[in-house]
Design a protein around this nucleic acid. Sequence first.
RNA 1: GCGGGUAUAGUUCAAUGGUAGAACAGCGGGUUGUGGUCCCGUUGACCUGGGUUCAAUUCCCAGUACUCGCCCCA
Length: 468
Amino acid sequence: MAKEKKKKSFKKNLKIKKTKSAFFGVRKEADKPVVLAESEIVKTSKKTPQLVRGFKDVLPAEQKYFKFITDALEILAVDYGFEKIDLPLLEESNLFSRAVGKETDIVTKEMFTFETPGGERVSLRPEATASVARAYINHGMLNLPQPVKLYYNGLMFRYERPQSGRYRQFNQFGFEILGDKHPVLDAQMIILCHNFFKEIGLPVNVQVNSIGCNSCRKEYKVQLVNYYKTQKSNLCDDCKERLNKNPLRLLDCKEEKCAIIKEEAPQIVDWLCDDCKNHFVKVLEFLDEVELPYNLNSNLVRGLDYYTNTVFEIWPEGDEKRSQTALCGGGRYDNLIELLGGRNTPALGVSIGIERTILKIKELNLPVPERAKRDIFVAQLGEAPRRKSLALYESLRKEGIKICESFSKDGLKSQLEIAGKLGVRFTLILGQKELSEGTILLRDMEAGSQETINFNKVVKEIKRRLEQ
RNA sequence: GCGGGUAUAGUUCAAUGGUAGAACAGCGGGUUGUGGUCCCGUUGACCUGGGUUCAAUUCCCAGUACUCGCCCCA
């Protein structure tokens, strides 16, 4: 029996060589199992390579969502005076440990980091703000008129456990304003994002907070820790951990027992220094001016070390309780450029999670423009017409007519079937008969009617019909 | 890193301790020159490894992937 089992698994890895006649279509007879000599048996233990964990192919059917979002954002980018910057996917690892923070989860356990053959330590970017700041310094953008407004669109990589709304490879579209500390910019950034979601038809809530500058935040942290220490025994395990590692994150906890403690906790707005308070108030005033609804969320803290003063997130309406729900997040990072060795340069930015936005669009069934349809299908019958069709295709294309074809097919039936699926308005049919007569058939796909037209007038005739 | 669920054609799902069916999609044909209806044919799958068993796609264990939640973040 063991023998049989062995045989079986052996068989799995084998493929019977097809005989020649099988290839030429004499199937019924030829497909009978053919006994082959050992030497004729081919090993095919080839396993198709699979996707790397957390990585995804974006198939044609999915493209319309990316296009929809990217188009909307690029229009906004132009409207608000941003220019595009493309940044490398790979950066020196220390860029992120210095910018994002040595102790943050992103840097300590979520980066794809490796050594190049030359021995440099590099990482796939987990976010792009650090790269923007680096580029600002590298290219002396402080010599440009300030503020410098940039946007990017690209892949980010984080080695996290994949789940809903979280992948190891994902797209972020981001805006950055560097070189100016005026609070009107904070407000404008929020307005821009809010407009984006409004324009794609996604109802959202804006969450705003200020986490102050380094000195008032430091002061606040002490107060917060002191308060939480008195409650330590009632905290969840995670919060006990946070108390030492990252006290601001205590405010983020969703555990019920911690929520009660949180209610009594000191709020950062009460500890802001005069400058920070002033800044924040002005930001809110600007938002009020354009009547943008926001939620003052004193528990909103952000996980990246570089943030200062204004921080904000935008959540889908009704999703307040869920955890990885933020569609976009951003804020000021007034210290980042100096931290990376540049001059003291205030800045702020935001990044929008493309996949998360798509997820929500699908969930709400929001209308997304379909791929632009083609108007004319060119069908052909026979070798001479096929040659002629190829040339016809070229001349129609030059005229700016939206055409499509299936030249490799022979039968008219299959070509019309494809034309039907593509949803064209007209199909041009060129066969031997038409070729010798100097005509071509024009078929109205919806009506199912067709007529013969002069081949030389085809461009003119099509243009006329498409205008109707 | 931790916990739950799942793993069968390209897709969505069945069934089964004795190696598996359908629907849709694909390809071909009915009509060698007419699609969106119909009919016929055909391609094509038990995640990997180990255990139990005469026999495992099925039961058990592990791994892996997917998925949902936690941590964290977009």
